[in-house]
């Protein structure tokens, strides 16, 4: 019982991080049908920028919590610029190209960003400085830390903010309209380029926050960390129904839970043959199963309602 609760807590925290990254994939896909495979690298750069800023500030005597906040802001600013530039430089010229071209470009961007990060931050693992005192709590035999609580809190606030933006503001309405019918949204006076740029910028900001969460949670970062994280977040987005915001959130949480529970019980299930380090197979097993049996995902939109 206690292992179940423990894995649920761990899964939710990991899932919240997946959800934050998955939103970046799903927003861009929802508006322009592009899978921005470089998004995982944007998250990685967010983590590394945060490390640099926080380490500098803490070294200068700034309190860690304050340094952490500055780190998040700096990471978000850098990631927003990178996200905006990716769209402007790499994807916009290919807007009317065949589908394969932007996909390959995305992979190319991903490699470029990784290599730039390697040149700036080096190839060694970096330690993410602690931002808050790590207190341990216990409930019904399961333990969780203040860091986990903070991650869930920040994720909730960020996602709430995103929902507000998309469902309660004029920019959000323009985003939804453009996703549904770009030509007609243009007739209404919506500048599609501006909407697409906003999707990249907002998604990258969420990715930066997620990057700081990953760093704080695992206390370690590396220039190649974006690849697996991006792939799993993409899986989460597909699981929820790519293009759908609620789907990305639910898909992220669900994938986190599946992984954590899988890792918790895989030893028992296979009689000790496979250990918890095999947890990655769950994410991709999920991806395969979803693609086989429900390619539109859990919240996937039916195509019938397009007028």
């Amino acid at each position: 019982m206690d292992i179940l609760l423990q894995q649920i807590i761990n899964g939710l925290v990991q899932g919240a991080i997946y959800a934050m990254v998955a939103l970046g994939y799903t927003m861009v896909y929802g508006i322009m049908g592009l899978i921005n495979f470089a998004h995982g690298e944007v998250v990685m750069i967010g983590t590394l920028v945060a490390i640099t800023v926080i380490t500098l500030l803490v070294g200068a005597g700034v309190p860690p919590a304050m340094a952490g906040a500055c780190g998040v802001v700096a990471a978000a600013a850098v990631c927003m610029i990178i996200g905006w530039s990716l769209e402007r430089v790499a994807y916009r010229p290919l807007r009317n190209a065949q589908r394969l071209a932007p996909l390959i470009t995305a992979i190319g961007c991903s490699i470029v960003l990784q290599n730039v990060a390697m040149m700036v931050w080096g190839r060694n693992y970096m330690t993410f400085p602690p931002l808050i005192a790590k207190t341990q709590f216990e409930i019904a035999g399961a333990s969780f830390t203040s860091v986990q609580v903070l991650i869930l809190l920040v994720a909730s606030v960020s996602m709430g903010g995103l929902l507000f933006l998309v469902y309660r503001t004029k920019l959000g309405m323009a985003m939804r309209a453009t996703a549904q019918n770009p030509a007609v949204a243009g007739l209404m006076g919506v500048n599609a380029n501006r909407v697409i740029s906003s999707a990249f910028v907002v998604g990258s900001a969420l990715g930066a926050v997620a990057g700081v969460m990953v760093g704080t949670y695992y206390e370690i970062a590396h220039y190649q960390m974006g690849f697996m994280l991006g792939l799993k977040a993409f899986t989460a987005a597909v699981l929820g129904g790519i293009g759908n915001l609620a789907g990305a959130m639910a898909g992220g949480l669900l994938l986190g839970l599946i992984e954590a529970l899988g890792a918790g019980y895989i030893g028992d299930l296979t009689g000790g043959f496979l250990g918890s380090h095999y947890q990655d197979i769950f994410a991709f097993a999920v991806l395969i199963v979803v693609l086989m049996f429900r390619p539109s995902g859990l919240f996937g939109e039916k195509t019938g309602d397009r007028a």
Binding site: R176, A177, N181, A183, L187, M188, N191, A192, D305, A307
Partner: peptide, 23 residues
């Protein structure tokens, strides 16, 4: 550019209506 027309005072009701189905 198309998004500037409406600011000039021209509105189109497109063929097939083109309503935003999920708004």
């Amino acid at each position: 550019p198309p998004h500037r027309l409406v600011r000039e005072g021209i509105a189109l009701v497109p063929e097939g209506r083109g309503v935003f189905p999920r708004l």
